[in-house]
Design a protein around this nucleic acid. Structure first.
Lengths: 148, 148
DNA sequence: TTTCGTGCAAAAGCTTTGCATTAGC
DNA sequence: GCTAATGCAAAGCTTTTGCACGAAA
């Protein structure tokens, strides 16, 4: 879980922005936002659903997906695409950043930010692309898995 | 398509390595290897299948997937995981390297190599992970799509 | 001749969609 | 009260699997 202050601020920000764009804050939707803001594990849709199911018996996976897609469309969540691991979501830092992923247990953590500006400029010059986003993943074995 | 010399060398290398590990070179398998070596478009499984279907009427998608998984297991092909775009494969450079991806048309190109050694070292020191691989993707709009 | 590979069809995951019901605002 | 959101079930995709047949070495 996240430290309380920053995750609560992020939650308020998400709610505020949704309200501004005429979106309703339902209990289910609020619950999904809460999980996204309070977790740092880059949860999958199913993880979010499983966390909420006990407290919200009528919650459905479809609602989780619909909420994630809404947030994705509005740039409020970053989707990490994996076919094996399943897609994972980051609501705290909804902008491209590096990740370190354990190929043993699927843990995903955020290392401190790297400066990718220079690399991006070189890319644009070389390829002629208008670069809008990026993804940098490091794969390896996490400390916990190394001890197994 | 690739330049003939290097793609034919890569093809021979793939065949040689499969033979060394007691794998049979069937016409279907050879055809998949050939497409992987001759294309630089990072094709999907279905793209490979569609390219070969006319020439090999009995070819099946299952065989393409089985061949790709065999090559992946042996480190002869790099799999790029996308949920929206579908997984894409690179048989020419089966080691982690940067990609530039057009979010308009799905084109994937390889920019010239960047030095990621230093970044990787920093990652390991900071996270305690034993880093084994990485993925660096830049997303943007390719020159062709910019003119549309 | 003995495996191994192929290819069909079915299954398995994950994600999306249609639609009637429910509930924000 | 109007309209958007929910949630069930069904459908859609991509990828994998089981198994009988066919072919490589």
């Amino acid at each position: 879980m996240n430290d309380n202050k920053s995750s609560e601020n992020r939650l308020k920000q998400m709610v505020e922005r949704l309200k501004e764009s005429e979106h309703r804050i339902t209990p289910q939707r609020y619950a999904v936002l809460r999980v996204l803001c309070r977790s740092r594990e880059h949860p999958s849709a199913e993880t979010i659903f499983n966390l909420l199911a006990p407290e919200y018996p009528t919650m459905s996976l479809a609602t989780v997906y619909k909420t994630l897609n809404l947030l994705k469309k509005r740039g409020e969540v970053l989707e990490l695409e994996f076919s094996e691991l399943g897609n994972r979501y980051d609501g705290n830092k909804p902008y491209p950043h590096p990740h370190v992923i354990c190929t043993g247990c699927g843990t995903i953590i955020d290392p401190s930010m790297l400066d990718l500006e220079e690399i991006t400029s070189k890319m644009m010059a070389e390829t002629g692309f208008r670069i809008t986003s990026h993804r940098l993943d490091f794969y390896g074995i996490c400390p916990a898995c190394q001890e197994k």
